[in-house]
């Protein structure tokens, strides 16, 4: 048991659930903003992933925990967070189409992970890894979800930041979106490094949720604005 493999993912998990609670609270107050609901779901997935990592760090490898982690923490989280941004920025027909595809793909991924074989004797190191799956094709799903999540979450945040930059308005929201984009990329880089056998996923996840939370707080602060109205949250 080490700080990297237990305390860090536990901190990520707690921060994710706190973040999710703040987002859900904002959704309850403004229920027309469905992006808040979807972001909240994504953050719960983030928290579940961190909890599984902390569990493994504290108590050792468990195939069921690996499957829960892989489904929520590796496959679904980025795509669902990104879908929240799609709800914010895209037109209704695109929102409907992508949501249907994402829900269907998530159901498929759920069944794929549940039915996948796991080597119970796989010696997981400091970080959880999908290499413990004996049904290797299930790992092929992850890049599809993560590429979609990166394009929508990071790309969406950078697009929003660019809109605020172009209009020279609400610098707090521009900075907030820059932080969200940076935070969204931190686990992606960590995950890719993990695939090449390098450590960094857990650190990337903690930095990621921390930056996204600070970014969220930045976008929600009240600023006296003398100029034009904003284009995106």
């Amino acid at each position: 048991m080490s700080a990297i493999s237990t305390v860090l993912p536990l901190a990520s998990s707690i921060l994710s659930f706190v973040f999710a609670a703040a987002v859900f609270k904002r959704y309850v107050n403004r229920s027309t903003r469905k992006q808040l609901l979807v972001w909240g779901i994504g953050l719960v997935f983030y928290g579940i992933g961190g909890a599984c990592e902390a569990f493994t760090g504290a108590f050792g490898f468990d195939p069921i925990v690996l499957k829960i982690w892989y489904l929520f923490g590796a496959i679904l989280v980025a795509a669902w967070l990104g879908q929240g941004t799609v709800f914010l920025l895209a037109r209704d027909k695109w929102v409907r189409a992508t949501t249907i595809i994402l829900v269907a793909a998530s159901v498929f991924a759920t069944f794929a992970v549940i039915s996948a074989g796991v080597d119970p004797n796989y010696a997981v190191g400091a970080e959880l890894t999908g290499k413990a799956f004996t049904t290797t094709w299930v790992r092929t799903l992850t890049p599809f979800f993560n590429i979609y999540g990166t394009v929508t979450l990071t790309g969406g945040a950078l697009y929003s930041a660019w809109l605020f930059w172009r209009k020279r308005v609400l610098p707090n929201r521009m900075i907030g979106n820059i932080l969200i984009a940076t935070g969204a990329m931190a686990p992606a880089f960590g995950g890719v490094l993990n695939r090449f056998g390098l450590p960094g996923l857990y650190i990337g996840e903690f930095i990621g949720v921390f930056l996204m939370y600070v970014g969220f707080l930045q976008t929600t602060v009240s600023v006296v604005q003398p100029a034009a109205a904003p284009a995106a949250e």
């Binding site: 990166t150 950078l158 930059w165 990329m185 880089f189």
Partner: peptide
């Protein structure tokens, strides 16, 4: 800030290439 946004867009492109 313009260069920060451009740099992050470049970084995102790298992330997508690595994911691919």
């Amino acid at each position: 800030m313009k260069y920060v946004i451009i740099a992050l867009t470049g970084l995102m492109t790298v992330a997508l290439i690595l994911a691919a």
